[in-house]
Design a binder for these strands. Structure first.
Length: 584
RNA sequence: GCGCCCGUAGCUCAGCGGAUAGAGCAACCGCCUUCUAAGCGGUAGGUCGCAGGUUCAAUUCCUGCCGGGCGCGCCA
């Protein structure tokens, strides 16, 4: 049970009763009524804004409504105190037994605790990474990868039917460059000498293997042939190799996407014509001339009539071109086709994870989705800011040219997949992130990965000790659920339990906001509460989890410890991080 | 020039329109030589960039400034 949701229901019920009794006008909109924990715990366990929110529509003073509401709520068997405070808040104190009973919920749900039906099985498409298939992933890609993957898990947890998608940009000029770079390495593999990689081609060593593999497959058949003959086949070969590489990088992070869609396949199958046609039918395409961008006119700017999409009707600043001067489609046109295709595959809700450098394209893309779906589809774009890589406080300079380019694989190799995943989620997606290769491996309180993992390991350590010292206590969740949890009365214990009771609420709000990072902060707070209890037990022996003379109390505390481990594990599970049971 | 993001304690950052704005680190003051496992407790530190507006209520929403980052037909 979500205790907060339960009491919101109780408050709503009381308000309906007041309406029925004529104390409040009929048909009030109760959607803005909320129940939440007060910021200051001394105000009670729960707080509702009902009286303040309803004062105006009901035409009554907040105090009047609050007084009537308090009278009803005070009768609830689990409410031990209901008082009016401040400008009209109603603060409720809830019986300890109500919170203690939540341990039973957690123990019976295990790591599924917090799962909900909020999404009602609605299909959601989360597209992330979608890097050009021209090389290995680097650290910036990792952030988008982790954020997208965690967000997908989060939405899955609250009942959406999630598809994880990678859109392969295999149709533009960059993959032609890849093909030419691979051709060069192919020649090299067959004994040709390369002095320097010509300007404009990819210099990376990772292409040497591609050249070797291509030579092994095709022998010398492309040597001395014109580009028009080898470009397409070598391009395909190189893209496939790059996607293998990228999938390996993603797998190293524990990321496995459901769908890899190809831009080229979409274009070849007429997807762009289909999408542009759909816009045309809605009268949203026209031929016109754009003004040059103010303050930054390109040198070769010339006013020219072009095919434009009426993006400005849907919140964008100007209308956007769909065709390049050579008559081919712009990337934007292709991307409209991509999103239209997703919509036609049954996704009304789409989420894209993009790098910060694409921020300028959000408006036009969301505009296009709204336009082409007639308002039935919606796109939410999450931008991932840059990751600054540090080593013990010193910035690691990255330059492709200087060969000091740090790949995702190298970072995973050095610090581990779980650390990368967790750290990437310790900041809001649109805030820059410092990633310090040394600090993330420190064993201290200011390293959140360690702190959270350690709490989980500590909980399991307690359970292991218990197994050795209290053979009479069943340590499985089912047995622990029968423990005398009413004996957990210390403020620290009840605080920890209340915090755990807030997990379902936290997870729903994080899912609603598409903000998985909130879970990281929650886990840190939860771990802090647990470590705090532990330390309290150091000073006061009566608060230790394992009480030699009191098996019943020990069982109750073990129930709490077990539940705690479940909640941490549930959170880490969404992050794709493996909870450790022992520190080494 | 325009658009988007950001501006909260010395530092790094939390904070679904709610009450006296929080955490970690650093600083200062104590405690712990012990056991359940990498220390613990406390103090201090703020005009939430500035100015308006909406609201019963604004750090939160809107507008305008200031400061920082990113982007700005024919790259993807």
């Amino acid at each position: 049970m979500d205790g907060f949701k339960y009491f919101l229901g109780e408050v709503t019920r009381a308000l309906r009763e007041l309406m029925a009794a004529g104390a409040l006008p009929q048909g009030l909109d109760l959607s803005r009524v909320g129940v939440e924990p007060p910021r200051d715990p001394s105000h009670g366990d729960l707080s509702t804004n009902a009286a303040m929110v309803l004062a105006k529509p009901a035409g009554k003073k907040p105090i009047e409504i609050a007084t009537a509401l308090v009278e009803r709520l005070a009768q609830h068997p689990e409410v031990t105190e209901a008082v009016i405070a401040g400008p009209g808040f109603i603060n409720l104190r809830i019986a300890d037994r109500f919170w203690q009973a939540r341990l039973g919920d957690i123990l019976s749900a295990g790591v599924d605790y917090g799962a909900s039906t909020m999404g009602a099985g609605e299909a959601v498409n989360v597209e992330y990474v979608s890097a050009n298939p021209t090389g290995p992933l680097h650290l910036a890609h990792a952030r988008g990868a982790v954020v997208g993957d965690a967000l997908a898990s989060l939405l899955d947890k609250v009942g959406y039917k999630v598809t994880r998608e990678y859109y392969i940009n295999d149709a533009g000029g960059q993959v032609d460059v890849l093909a030419r770079s691979a051709y060069l390495r192919y020649g090299e593999a067959l004994g040709e000498t390369i002095d320097a990689i010509p300007e404009g081609l990819y210099p990376g060593d990772y292409l040497k293997a591609v050249g070797v593999a291509l030579a092994a497959r095709d022998g010398k058949k492309w040597l001395g042939k014109p580009e028009s003959e080898w470009l397409a086949p070598i391009r395909k070969f190189a893209i496939d190799e790059m996607m293998k590489l990228i999938r390996e990088d993603l797998a190293a992070l524990g990321i496995h996407q459901d769908v890899f869609s190809s831009e080229r396949a979409l274009v070849d199958s007429g997807g762009v014509e289909r999408a542009v046609g759909a816009l045309q039918e809605r009268g949203l395409i026209y031929i016109g001339v754009l003004e040059p961008p103010k303050g930054k006119t390109p040198d070769d700017w010339e006013p020219r009539p072009q095919t434009l999409f009426r993006a400005s009707q849907f919140g964008d600043d100007v209308d956007r071109p769909l065709k390049k001067s050579d008559g081919s489609w712009t990337y934007f046109a292709n991307d409209i086709a991509n999103h239209y295709d997703k919509y036609r595959r049954g996704f009304a809700t789409m989420i894209d994870i993009w790098g910060a450098d694409h921020g300028g394209y959000i408006k036009r893309m969301t505009a296009a989705v709204t336009a082409i779906t007639g308002g039935k589809g919606a796109l939410d774009v999450k931008i991932c800011q840059l990751v600054k890589l540090l080593r013990d406080g010193q910035q690691v300079k990255m330059s492709k040219r200087a060969g000091t380019f740090v790949t995702l694989a190298e970072v995973v190799e050095e610090v581990g997949r779980d650390v990368v995943r967790f750290i990437m989620l310790t900041r809001k997606n649109d805030a820059p992130l410092d990633f310090d290769l040394v600090k993330v491996q420190e064993q201290s309180r200011d390293n959140p990965v360690f702190y959270v993992q350690y709490a989980h390991a500590r909980a399991h350590s307690v359970l292991r000790h218990a197994a050795a010292e209290y053979p009479g206590i069943g340590l499985d969740a089912e047995s622990l659920a029968k423990a005398s949890v009413q004996r957990l009365t210390d403020s620290g214990e009840l605080g920890l339990i209340r915090l755990m009771a807030g997990w379902p609420r936290l997870i729903e709000s994080a899912a609603e906001a598409h903000e998985p990072h909130r879970i990281a902060f929650y886990l840190y707070d939860l771990a802090a509460a647990f470590h705090g209890l532990w330390n309290k037990g150091k000073d006061e022996a009566s608060l230790r989890f394992l009480m030699p003379d009191d098996t019943a109390l020990t069982a109750a505390r073990l129930a709490m410890v077990r539940a705690f481990a479940f909640v941490i594990a549930a959170g880490l599970d969404i992050f794709g991080v493996k909870p450790v049971e022992e520190m080494r």
